[in-house]
Amino acid sequence: MTEALAFPRHQEHPAPARPLLVATNVRKHYGGVEVLKGISLSVNAGEVMCLLGPSGSGKSTFLRCINHLERIDGGRISVGGELVGYAQRQDRIFEMNPREVAKQRSGIGMVFQRFNLFPHMTALENIWAAPVGVKKVPKQHAIKRGMELLDRVGLAHLAKAYPAQLSGGQQQRVAIARALAMDPQLLLFDEPTSALDPELVGDVLDVMRTLAADGMTMIVVTHEIGFARGAADSVVFMDGGVVVESGAPADVLDNPQNPRTIAFLESVM
């Protein structure tokens, strides 16, 4: 993938920067092992952030905390000014009940490493199931929108195929369309190309680049340095549960300061 495919969005969308996601001192531990040791970062609306780092650095865990798939043990995360998974009443903070969490999650899309399409539904059904079931969109509208989204990821001809009949790259593009169908204000990608054969990675990254160009706010955990360099507005390098280095892609990727960042970039490039 060359940089010609990347879209320099700063010039096209000179909207004033407003943070959509704000994470402050986020902590998480499993048993006695602390995986996130106080993560603080923010992502502006319409921007793309890439999270890089070796496995076990906590980047996927952090991503899962953003839509409350994991409960955080300290700090706070807010999306669009709303605390994730918790409600503040007077001076006290309560964990939301499952239905409130579900409502909040419908505004945050997620794309998984292993696609996680619903195997008993066709590609099109996968896309309209949540808008119809959760947002009560009329079925006809949702099906029409689903076809548009499938067309957008280049798979309109496979609307009636079941996930088992699709390649990994096709499944992942359906999964992206499924997330988009809920009109999320934020889209999370958890290593979206790691489970794909090398020749299928390009198609998925192309779809993600188009989304980025359209102004979708995205947080992407990835090992694709080329994608980060071309499509990201900011890059965060994590290691051992802390943010080691962050900044514009050109600074972090081409002129890294921290020895751990340097060692990681050398090993993947």
Binding site: L69, V101, A102, R105, N116, R178
Partner: peptide, 11 residues
């Protein structure tokens, strides 16, 4: 379960 949750589906 995770995919369903991430789409805002109730339990």
């Amino acid at each position: 379960h995770e995919a369903a949750s991430s789409l805002g589906m109730s339990p």
